[in-house]
Design a protein around this nucleic acid. Structure first.
Lengths: 144, 144
DNA sequence: TTCTAACAGTTAGAATTCTAAATGTCAACA
DNA sequence: TGTTGACATTTAGAATTCTAACTGTTAGAA
């Protein structure tokens, strides 16, 4: 690997990006047996905990464009993992629900995602874990 | 926003991912005036500091697939920012060089990336910055 | 009641990234 | 010298994500 690198000027940008990619790669590989990727897995998990959530809220939570969420949900619906229903009280919205086929994946997903979370924490002391959580939470709150 | 969320079980996965996306969005917006995105900008910056680096090393550094780097570099070459040369001593490789059109962007890019870096650090004390850097470096080293 | 601005989701098409396979080259070994 | 496995890059096509514009709906003001 090249010796002299410009990331030294922006270490956080680099480290956050690369750690994020590494985690995504691990999660993608973990879910490949289900024919799903990490974003889809995270989305199913989130819907499981938030039955009837509207698409807009998914986009907000994951910081993804509306169109990307639409496209992903279309795929998940097509594969039979979710259904989207227009509520009686607001025809603009679609509320998203897990179908049985989606529900049966959740336990496995949680286990796999937990393993990956531990890939982060296992090299840290309890104190370090608490500190990192505090710092990342602060940064996230501060960023728009 | 939904109250009950499953990210509480995997806070690091969520926070790292979302912070990373937010930074990417800021950087993309920052570079839009040049008709480039953040990955392209980071790549040009890295090539600037590592004249003659081969594609494989770029892929390793950015944790991207070889094919993605090829595709991106093809675009950058087409737009006149870089050139790729096959060295005399190894015909498998292509060494990458900035062209003048690419070089003249570097200063602006550095400034913009520095601003985004400061978006991370400005809410932290010096001590917290050092701690975060230490922790993220440790985690990155520990992840494959 | 009508209008306006904002909202939620979608579409079409482009851009980006990936997968899987392929091609040509190199290094090391027999 | 010949062979083999590894290397670096590319290609074709699929998947994912985005941009920009659009459609239909709602909430609130006039």
């Amino acid at each position: 690997m090249a010796e002299n690198n410009s990331w030294a000027n922006q270490p956080f940008s680099y480290l956050l990006r690369v750690i994020s990619i590494k985690m995504k790669n691990k999660a993608d590989k973990s879910l490949a047996e289900f024919g799903l990727n990490s974003q889809q897995g995270h989305t199913l998990g989130y819907i499981n905990s938030n039955e009837g959530i509207i698409q807009k809220e998914l986009a907000d939570f994951f910081k993804k464009r509306d169109a990307s969420i639409t496209s992903m949900l279309q795929g998940l619906e097509k594969k039979g993992f979710i259904e989207r229903r227009i509520p009686k009280d607001n025809e603009r919205e679609k509320k998203v629900y897990l179908l049985p086929k989606g529900k049966e994946l959740i336990e496995d997903f949680d286990k796999k995602f937990q393993e990956i979370e531990e890939d982060i924490t296992k090299c840290l002391t309890d104190d370090e874990i608490q500190t990192l959580l505090r710092l990342l939470t602060k940064i996230n709150s501060n960023l728009e």
